[in-house]
Design a protein around this nucleic acid. Structure first.
Ligand SMILES: [Mn+2]
Ligand SMILES: [Mn+2]
Ligand SMILES: [Zn+2]
Ligand SMILES: [Zn+2]
Lengths: 142, 142
DNA sequence: TCCTTCTTTAGAATTATTCCAATTTCAACT
DNA sequence: AGTTGAAATTGGAATAATTCTAAAGAAGGA
């Protein structure tokens, strides 16, 4: 069998919730993100999925990633003007971008920090999304 | 006299510190940022400076903005994949991006918050820069 | 099956930014 | 004051991530 199975059908559920169809392309793209959680770019996802779905197009990869972001299964992560990276980690977390290696690390947020951060907003500000990103040197991966 | 004078020569100082020359283009670009602190894009800076230095080129505006960023006089601010915006506010602050108006607001950080945020990094991580950005609805400007 | 809608696809278009080669500016040194 | 080499500016070409477009391919319900 060739259908990916990692995702415990959270995908099917979220797609249904949004009135969208479940397609092989969407499954393979989501699976690629779950299988290697290194915040790949669209191009990198394209290369990985192509080994399993040789006919998939880059446009479709962009479409699928956008769909997954809409469904709240994936976050789009941007560092300066570098290509967008994609992250399936659903826990509240920050991103650390290591300039020297180009790698991206998830930094878990302690409970309450997001609330405290949101608390700095003056009255009347309503934040839908908060992004916290670090840039610097990460420890050797060992 | 046609030389801008807003900037109390912090510019001349920082340029000298970096071994760079002070030029009219750099002065006018920096002045444009200080005069209207609405986080303009490079194109917007170009349009504003052109009224005073009609011969300036867009490439030079990009060069000057990059120089100002290197000198730590200006921050480059990115929201998703929108054009980079430029901010001369030197205080530690976050950015709030209002989706409906497209406007960007500075959010002052309470003392200690940056340290607390930096404190969530596991041992070995060394952050050179921290970006905190909000996206949502800001109150009417009144 | 028919019909409608959603999705995928290839390739063209967009566009912010960077690159390049040719001038211009400028400060240092005769 | 004139020379000179480095730094800076300029216009235009190039780059590259992403989006758009129009056509073809699923899929689900009547
Ligand atoms: Mn980087
Ligand atoms: Mn926006
Ligand atoms: Zn992540
Ligand atoms: Zn700012």
């Amino acid at each position: 069998m060739s259908t990916p199975a990692i995702h415990s059908d959270a995908l099917a559920q979220k797609l249904a919730d949004s009135g969208l169809r479940n397609t092989p392309q969407r499954e393979f793209v989501y699976d690629a993100l779950l299988k290697k959680r290194d915040h790949p770019t669209a191009d990198e996802v394209y290369a990985r999925v192509k080994t399993q779905l040789p006919g998939i197009s880059l446009a479709t990869v962009y479409n699928c990633l956008e769909t997954l972001v809409q469904c709240d299964l994936v976050r789009a992560v941007n560092f300066e003007r570098a290509p967008t990276r994609y992250c399936p980690n659903q826990h509240p977390h920050a991103h650390f971008h290591d300039e020297s290696t180009g790698s991206t690390h998830d930094i878990e947020l302690p409970p309450g920090l997001l609330a405290k951060i949101k608390g700095i907003l003056p009255p009347g500000y309503d934040a839908e999304a908060i992004e916290l990103t670090f840039r610097g040197k990460a420890p050797p991966s060992r």
